[in-house]
């Protein structure tokens, strides 16, 4: 029951980096900022690898961006993915364009499953997977999670949270929604987006990193794919939110109570 899976690996600012806006509001200051795979995409790669380990198949990593996005593809290959596709595009993107380009990758690869992060931590849009599913006419399982905690035995054993049916034609997805947890069954092919608690991604091993250098990485020029590359969602200006002033430290519970009761009047 081999599964062919396409996963995404977007290059984003490391979440630990301090993000500052340029004085003219045209972008963010990139000096001293580190880059890595979007953490949700890392979870997508991990899930794809676990599914492959259980069912066999192939994991193809796709990224859209400039030449430097090769680094993130190689990082996913070092985790264990089989080969990469870089859709070369320099310049701004939005989920409309990204999903159109990913649909071209899907057309080429014809996978059973596409797994993306639920959102990228730079633009925080949470859209690309859903757009892609609609473009393809496929079912979607967003915010995929699993029942067990990230410290459970199943997680230690690296079991996939996505469960393939016995006939290999459907996938059961546990989703994090407001007010509880929902379980859906999706007929394959399908699109899944990952939430934080689907798994704990593995680290790349040194042999993995060495092997990754030799794995195939195909480059496609975005401009040659017949997709309108003009972003429809345009960021006009960036600014920093008003800073919240730190307040005072109180000596004890007595003083805290007084402050909340008499000064802030919230209790």
């Amino acid at each position: 029951m081999a599964l062919k899976i396409v996963v995404t690996a977007k290059r984003v600012e490391d979440p630990e980096s301090k993000i500052r806006v340029k004085p003219d509001g045209s972008g963010i200051v990139t000096d001293g900022v580190n880059y890595k795979i979007n953490p949700f995409d890392e979870i997508a790669v991990e899930e794809a690898l676990r599914l492959k380990e259980r069912h066999g198949g192939e994991v193809v990593v796709a990224s859209i961006g400039g030449e430097r996005s090769q680094t993130e593809i190689r990082a996913a290959l070092a985790m264990g993915a089989d080969r990469g596709i870089l859709v070369r595009h320099d310049g701004p993107l939005d989920p409309v364009v990204v999903s159109a380009l990913l649909a071209k990758v899907v057309e080429q690869e014809k996978p059973d499953l596409v797994i993306l992060g639920k959102q990228s931590i730079d633009d925080d849009q949470n859209q690309a997977g859903q757009y892609l599913a609609e473009r393809l006419g496929w079912p979607q399982g967003t915010f995929a999670s699993k029942t067990e905690s990230l410290e459970s035995e199943a997680e230690q054993k690296k079991e996939p949270g996505l469960v393939l049916s016995a006939d290999g034609k459907a996938l059961t997805v546990v989703r994090e929604v407001d007010g509880g947890v929902e379980t859906l069954e999706l007929g394959l092919p399908a699109v899944v987006t990952t939430d934080l608690r689907l798994n704990k991604p593995r680290f790349a091993s040194l042999p993995g990193i060495m092997k990754a250098k030799k794995k195939p990485l195909q480059e496609l020029a975005a401009a040659s794919l017949g997709v309108d590359l003009a972003p429809q969602v345009v960021v006009k200006r960036l600014s920093e939110p008003p800073a919240r002033k730190g307040g005072v430290k109180v000596a004890d519970v007595e003083e805290l109570w007084k402050k909340l009761h008499d000064e802030a009047k919230v209790l």
Partner: peptide, 20 residues
């Protein structure tokens, strides 16, 4: 109309225009 929305975990506010 432009839309004001957070990016980078709320560390940045963006003013966004939708062209469609």
């Amino acid at each position: 109309v432009t839309f004001r929305r957070p990016m980078w975990a709320g560390n940045v506010l963006a003013e966004v225009e939708i062209a469609t």
